[in-house]
Design a protein around this nucleic acid. Sequence first.
DNA 1: TGCATGTATGTCCAATCGGACAGATAGTAC
DNA 2: GTACTATCTGTCCGATTGGACATACATGCA
Lengths: 110, 110
Amino acid sequence: MDKRKRTRLRAAGWTVGTPREFLGLSDEEAAFVEFKLALSKTLQALRAAQELSQVDVAKRLHSSQSRVAKMEASDPSVSVDLLVRSLFKLGAQPGDIAKALRPRRRVAAT
Amino acid sequence: MDKRKRTRLRAAGWTVGTPREFLGLSDEEAAFVEFKLALSKTLQALRAAQELSQVDVAKRLHSSQSRVAKMEASDPSVSVDLLVRSLFKLGAQPGDIAKALRPRRRVAAT
DNA sequence: TGCATGTATGTCCAATCGGACAGATAGTAC
DNA sequence: GTACTATCTGTCCGATTGGACATACATGCA
């Protein structure tokens, strides 16, 4: 987005910026939600790799399908604890989790 | 500990083994407590590096000294969420956390 | 000795989390 | 069309968590 358009939008009362700016998140909060997101993605990937349904995973975790869906969606009602425990139960190794948390290479902003 | 002594102790009614065995933790549970422990240690290290008291840290986190003590002690009442949020608030980068989680090289058991 | 500082531990209660259920939506096969 | 499967979303209520407080313990210093 170029400066001109940005300015016009702001003048029209719009908030312009990144999702993080939009939501008014501080740096630490943003880092935390990204952290959770990385774990969610890892969980999804692990499930896909094992070709399981959410119901299957729920059984292994002694939980419910709806909670698994929320875990994968990084729902606010899901804690990092639950995500980490679940990853371990699905066979992830500590190293796998560490790997998943490494910050993605940043791509040039447009 | 040698085999002989181990056997004698068991005969005398003692449980012999790792803390994990002693507590009857499954692999995933053990992995999880180690995970938490790594975060606690990182928090302590971060505080030490900045030469802050627990009270100082508590202020930065908008929490209390007692909770900080429990975080560093990896108390059961402390969640991974709290630890991770705290680390970020103290300025840790995602990469730092990933690094802290990498499994330590195992040393020959005695 | 008393006093200050830093840390550890136990408890209380409000806030958050998590399993479970209901119901919605989407895709596929018959 | 119905039926089945997989996933998503909202809600409820018991369980866990977290800030706060009191208090104990340790160390250093005047």
